[in-house]
C-alpha cells in the first residue's frame, strides 16, 4: 500500500486574540491518498478554514505535524513543496487581482518559481486556459469581463500551473449558481482523472459531498466528530451533528427525502454559547447525556466509519432508502 499523499497528525491550532484563547482546531488527524477526493464538511466555526490554512502553510500548527509526500512540512516551506499544492478559493470575485489580466494571474506561479521562458510561459497559459474550458485568447482580458463561473475556471487553471499533486478546494462552488456548479464539478472530475490529482474538498453542502467525494470528515468546533466513506456515512450517520446536518439539507426530490433522518426541531435546547468542557455540540443536542459534559468522546467504530459520540444515533439496519420507500408504499396504499 503506497503511503498517503497528505498526512495530518494530531494537529492543534490555538489563537490568542487579546485576552481570549481560541482553540480553532483540536487534535485533528486525517489522510488523503493520491488521486482520491476527501471532503471536509463543517459550518462556520468548525475550523475547516483553519485546517485548510494549516495544510496550505498560511498558518503553522501549535502542535502536531503535516506531511506531504512523506516530507514533514515546517514553518518555512520550500518552493518545491509549494509547487505540489494548488489552492482554489471560494469567492470568484476576490480570487483574481482586478488590476491584472487573466494571463498575468495564471502566470504568477510560473513567475515566482522561474519556470520556463517567456514564450514557454505564454504557451503554457494558453494550454491551461483551454484545459479549463476557456479560450486561450482570454489571457489578455481583465477579471471584470468574466462571469463567476469563468473566474473559477481561471482560479483552477492557476492552481494547476505548477503540476501539483494535491488541490485544496475551499468551497469552490458555493458562490456559484447551481447550473454553473454542475459545469465546474464535471471539470474538476475530468481534471482529476487526467492528472491523477488528489482533492481536499471543503464544503458545507452535503449534496456536493455525495457526488464528488469518496471519504468525508465532519468537523464541529475544531474537532472531527465523524469520518469515513461517503457511502457508510450517508447510509447511517451516527454522530448527532451529522444527523442534524443531513436533516437540514433542503432536498429536491422524494428519493433524496429518504436520505434525510428525522430531527426533533421543536426540542428545547439552550441557545448559543459553547460549553468549555466535553462535547461542544452538547448545547444544541437534544440527545445529550451527562457524560457529554465531562469529556470529549474518543473515536468509536471501524476504519471505514468512525465517530466521537456517547449517545450516537442507532445504526441503521437497512439502508434508509428502503425504509423510506416502505413508508411511501404504505402512504400510497
Amino acid at each position: 500500500m503506497s503511503p498517503p499523499l497528505l498526512k495530518v497528525t494530531k494537529v492543534n491550532k490555538v489563537f490568542h486574540v487579546g485576552s481570549a484563547t481560541i482553540h480553532a482546531v483540536t487534535d485533528i488527524s486525517l489522510t488523503v491518498n493520491k488521486g482520491e477526493t476527501v471532503a471536509i464538511v463543517g459550518e462556520s466555526g468548525s475550523g475547516k478554514t483553519t485546517l485548510a490554512n494549516l495544510i496550505l502553510g498560511i498558518e503553522v500548527p501549535t502542535s502536531g505535524e503535516v506531511e506531504l509526500a512523506g516530507e514533514q512540512l515546517k514553518g518555512r516551506r520550500s518552493k518545491a513543496v509549494r509547487r505540489k499544492i494548488g489552492l482554489v478559493q471560494q469567492n470568484p470575485y476576490s480570487t483574481l487581482n482586478p488590476r491584472k489580466s487573466i494571463g498575468q494571474a495564471i502566470g504568477l506561479p510560473l513567475d515566482v518559481h522561474g519556470i520556463g521562458s517567456r514564450a514557454e510561459r505564454r504557451r503554457r497559459i494558453g494550454q491551461l486556459l483551454e484545459k479549463v474550458g476557456l479560450n486561450a485568447g482570454h489571457r489578455d482580458r481583465r477579471p471584470l469581463a468574466l462571469s463567476g463561473g469563468q473566474r473559477q475556471r481561471v482560479a483552477i487553471a492557476r492552481a494547476l500551473t505548477t503540476n501539483p499533486e494535491l488541490l485544496v478546494l475551499d468551497e469552490p462552488t458555493s458562490s456559484l449558481d447551481v447550473s454553473v456548479q454542475a459545469h465546474i464539478l464535471r471539470l474538476l472530475r475530468d481534471l482529476q482523472k487526467e492528472f491523477d490529482l488528489a482533492y481536499l474538498f471543503i464544503t458545507h453542502d452535503l449534496g456536493v459531498v455525495r457526488v464528488v467525494a469518496s471519504r468525508v470528515v465532519v468537523m464541529y468546533r475544531g474537532r472531527v466528530v465523524e469520518e469515513g466513506s461517503v457511502a457508510a456515512i450517508f447510509h447511517s450517520p451516527r454522530h448527532r451533528y451529522t444527523q442534524l446536518l443531513l436533516a437540514s439539507i433542503p432536498t429536491v426530490s422524494e428519493e433524496d427525502d429518504a436520505f434525510r433522518p428525522d430531527w426533533p426541531w421543536d426540542a428545547e435546547v439552550k441557545s448559543d454559547g459553547d460549553p468549555a468542557e466535553g462535547c461542544p455540540f452538547r448545547s444544541r443536542c437534544p440527545f445529550a447525556v451527562e457524560r457529554c459534559g465531562q469529556e470529549f468522546p474518543d473515536m468509536h467504530g471501524s476504519s471505514d466509519h468512525r465517530y466521537a459520540c456517547f449517545n450516537p444515533r442507532p445504526e441503521a439496519s437497512e439502508p434508509i432508502v428502503n425504509l423510506q420507500a416502505e413508508k411511501l408504499e404504505r402512504k400510497k396504499a
Partner: peptide, 25 residues
C-alpha cells in the same frame, strides 16, 4: 483579499506581493 492570499500560497515573497499585487491596486 483572495488574490493576495493566493499569491502568498504560491510562494510569492512579500516584496513581490507588494509590488505585483498591491501596488497596482
Amino acid at each position: 483579499e483572495g488574490f493576495v492570499v493566493a499569491a502568498e500560497v504560491v510562494g510569492a515573497s512579500p516584496l513581490r506581493v507588494m509590488f505585483s499585487e498591491l501596488l497596482p491596486n
